[in-house]
Design a protein around this nucleic acid. Structure first.
Length: 352
DNA sequence: AACACGGGGTA
DNA sequence: TACCCAGTGTT
C-alpha cells in the first residue's frame, strides 16, 4: 500500500491525462515572460476573466521590452476593468527592472524571483515550475481546497500556521520530476472537479481515499476564519465641463483605484439626495461660480470586497473654468477614453 | 497578524 | 447576500 501523497499524485496525473479538458492559451508555454504575465493577471482572478486580458497584453506587448518601454497610461488603460490595479503598477515596475537592469533575463532562483514586485510565494513557484521545470509546489486557492479535503485538514487556510502547513503538504505531494505538469493538473482539478461549491465527488477518482468525502466534510473544508467587514461609501462625481474640456484627476491616495482617473469627487459620510438647487448652492459655495447647466444622473452601486460603493454622477457645465477650482488636468471630451477609469466611470463613458 | 485591494461568477 | 477566484503588499 503506497503512502497517501504518492497515491494522490498518481491519481492526479492519471486524471490529467485522461479527463482534463481545461484549455488555456498559456498552458504548456515555457517563455518566462508569458508565464509571468499570465500569473500576474490570474492572481485572484478567474481564468475566463483573465483570458482576454492576457491576449490583448500579448498583442500589445509581444516581448518584455515592449512592455518595459510602454507609457504608464497606455498600460493602465489595457488593465482597466481587471481590478487590483496595484498588480498593474508592479507589472510595469518589474518589466522595467528585468529589461533595463537584468538584460531582459528572468532570474531562475527562488530567492531572486521572490524579490520582484508583484511576485509572492505562489507566483514564484508557478514560474519556477512552469518556465524552469524546478520542483516548487504552487499553493493557490485550488490547492488549499483540494488538499484540505483529501487530507481532512481543518487548520484555517488564512492563518500563518495553515499557510505553512499546506505549503509543506503541497511539497510532499508534488511530482518532483514533472513539477509543471503536476502544478497545472492540481489547479485544473480544483477548478473543475474539486470545486468550491457542488464538487463532482460522485465522479471523482479520489473519492475512495478523500478524507472529506468519506467523513461527510466536503462542504466544511477548507476552513477560513477571515471575516470581511464592508463599509459603505457615498461618492458623488461632478463631471465638470467648460467649453469642450472636462476636468479629471488621477487618484493618488492610499485607497481603492489608485493610479486610475476620476472626475471631481465629493465624498460624504451620509447619503445625499442631490437636486438642482443643492448642486447650484454647492457650485456657488465651492467654486464661486454659477453653473450653466446641470444634469443629475441616477444613483448606481458597486460591490467591492471590502466596500459597498454608492455612487452618482452629476454633469455640470460652466461657461469658463472656475478660477477657484483646484484643477489637475483639463482634457478634451473625446480623449477621455484614453485614460483608465474605475468600472463605474468607464461604464458611464461607454454609455452616458 | 490583520487588513486592504476590484470585478465578476455561482448558489 | 455571501463566498470565491492561478495572491500580494502594507502596517
Amino acid at each position: 500500500m503506497k503512502n497517501k501523497p504518492a497515491r494522490f499524485r498518481k491519481n492526479l496525473l492519471s486524471w490529467n491525462e485522461t479527463s482534463n479538458k481545461r484549455s488555456m492559451p498559456w498552458k504548456g508555454v515555457k517563455d518566462p515572460y508569458k508565464i509571468w504575465l499570465s500569473e500576474i493577471i490570474l492572481q485572484q482572478t478567474r481564468v475566463e476573466q483573465g483570458r482576454k486580458y492576457y491576449e490583448s497584453f500579448l498583442e500589445a506587448f509581444p516581448a518584455i521590452g515592449d512592455l518595459a518601454k510602454a507609457g504608464d497610461e497606455s498600460v493602465f488603460k489595457l488593465w482597466e476593468g481587471l481590478g487590483y490595479y496595484n498588480r498593474c503598477k508592479n507589472l510595469l515596475k518589474t518589466a522595467r527592472e528585468i529589461y533595463f537592469e537584468k538584460g531582459g533575463i528572468f532570474p531562475d532562483a527562488y530567492e531572486d524571483i521572490i524579490q520582484l514586485k508583484g511576485i509572492g510565494p505562489y507566483t514564484a513557484a508557478a514560474m519556477l515550475s512552469f518556465a524552469f521545470n524546478k520542483p516548487y509546489a504552487v499553493v493557490d486557492g485550488n490547492v488549499f481546497r483540494v488538499l484540505a479535503r483529501i487530507y481532512g485538514i481543518d487548520t484555517p487556510i488564512d492563518s500563518t500556521e495553515g499557510k505553512k502547513y499546506f505549503t509543506d503538504l503541497a511539497h510532499q505531494n508534488l511530482d518532483k520530476k514533472l513539477p509543471g505538469v503536476y502544478n497545472q493538473a492540481i489547479m485544473d482539478f480544483g477548478a473543475t472537479v474539486c470545486k468550491p461549491a457542488k464538487p463532482e465527488c460522485n465522479n471523482c477518482i479520489m473519492n475512495s481515499f478523500c478524507a472529506a468525502y468519506l467523513n461527510g466534510l466536503v462542504n466544511h473544508l477548507p476552513v477560513k476564519d477571515n471575516i470581511i467587514r464592508k463599509k459603505i461609501r457615498h461618492l458623488t462625481w461632478l463631471k465638470i465641463s467648460a467649453g469642450n474640456k472636462v476636468l479629471i484627476y488621477k487618484r493618488t491616495a492610499n485607497d481603492i483605484w489608485q493610479n486610475l482617473y476620476e472626475f471631481y469627487l465629493v465624498e460624504k459620510e451620509e447619503k445625499t439626495d442631490w437636486n438642482i438647487e443643492s448642486v447650484k448652492d454647492f457650485c456657488n459655495h465651492v467654486f464661486s461660480m454659477n453653473p450653466q447647466q446641470i444634469n443629475i444622473l441616477p444613483k448606481t452601486e458597486q460591490q467591492l470586497t471590502h466596500q459597498k460603493i454608492k455612487a452618482q454622477i452629476i454633469e455640470i457645465d460652466f461657461t469658463e473654468a472656475p478660477g477657484t477650482l483646484h484643477a489637475q488636468q483639463w482634457v478634451e471630451e473625446d480623449v477621455l477614453k484614453q485614460f483608465a477609469f474605475p468600472k463605474l466611470l468607464a461604464a458611464y463613458l461607454d454609455e452616458p
